[in-house]
Deep mutational scan, measured.
Amino acid sequence: SLEELLKLARHALRHGEEIHVLDRVITDEHEIKRLIEELERLI
């Protein structure tokens, strides 16, 4: 769900981890922040 993805993204950002989204691995902090902003808009 989007909520789950948002939780994962926030966790990854906090802990400096990578996040796997739709067969992509996002490691860049700015990309993760952008993902979080997009998800928050959708929810």
Rank of each mutant, 00 (worst) to 15 (best):
S1N: 13
S1G: 10
S1M: 14
S1I: 12
S1T: 12
S1Q: 11
S1H: 12
L2K: 04
L2T: 04
L2G: 01
E3N: 07
E3H: 07
E3T: 07
E4C: 03
E4Q: 11
E4K: 11
L5N: 02
L6Q: 01
L6V: 05
L6F: 01
L6N: 01
K7Q: 12
K7H: 08
A9D: 00
A9K: 00
A9Y: 11
A9H: 01
R10V: 08
R10I: 15
R10L: 12
H11D: 14
H11Q: 11
H11F: 02
H11M: 04
H11E: 15
A12W: 02
A12T: 00
A12M: 03
A12H: 03
A12R: 03
A12P: 00
L13C: 03
L13F: 04
L13T: 03
L13Y: 05
L13W: 03
R14L: 15
R14I: 15
R14N: 15
H15D: 08
H15I: 07
H15M: 12
H15T: 15
H15F: 11
G16M: 07
G16R: 09
E17S: 12
E17K: 13
E17G: 15
E17V: 13
E17R: 10
E17W: 07
E18R: 08
E18S: 15
E18F: 08
E18L: 07
E18Q: 11
I19T: 02
I19M: 13
I19R: 01
I19K: 01
H20A: 08
H20Y: 07
H20C: 02
H20E: 08
V21H: 09
V21K: 03
V21T: 06
L22Q: 13
D23P: 03
D23W: 01
D23R: 02
D23F: 01
R24G: 06
R24H: 08
V25W: 09
V25P: 04
V25L: 10
V25G: 03
I26E: 01
T27H: 10
D28M: 09
D28I: 06
D28Q: 10
D28P: 02
D28W: 04
D28S: 13
E29Y: 14
E29S: 14
E29L: 13
H30C: 07
H30L: 12
H30T: 12
H30Q: 13
H30G: 14
H30W: 14
H30R: 13
E31M: 09
E31T: 08
E31L: 08
E31R: 05
I32Q: 03
I32S: 01
I32M: 07
K33L: 14
K33W: 08
K33P: 01
R34D: 11
R34H: 12
R34K: 15
L35P: 00
L35E: 01
L35R: 03
L35I: 10
I36N: 00
I36P: 00
I36E: 00
E37F: 13
E37T: 12
E37W: 12
E37H: 13
E37M: 14
E38W: 14
E38R: 13
E38L: 14
L39C: 02
L39S: 00
L39I: 11
L39G: 00
L39M: 04
L39A: 02
E40P: 00
E40Y: 04
E40V: 08
E40Q: 06
R41D: 06
R41L: 09
R41N: 08
R41M: 10
R41E: 07
R41I: 10
R41Y: 10
R41H: 09
L42K: 11
L42A: 10
L42C: 03
L42P: 00
L42H: 05
I43S: 02
I43C: 02
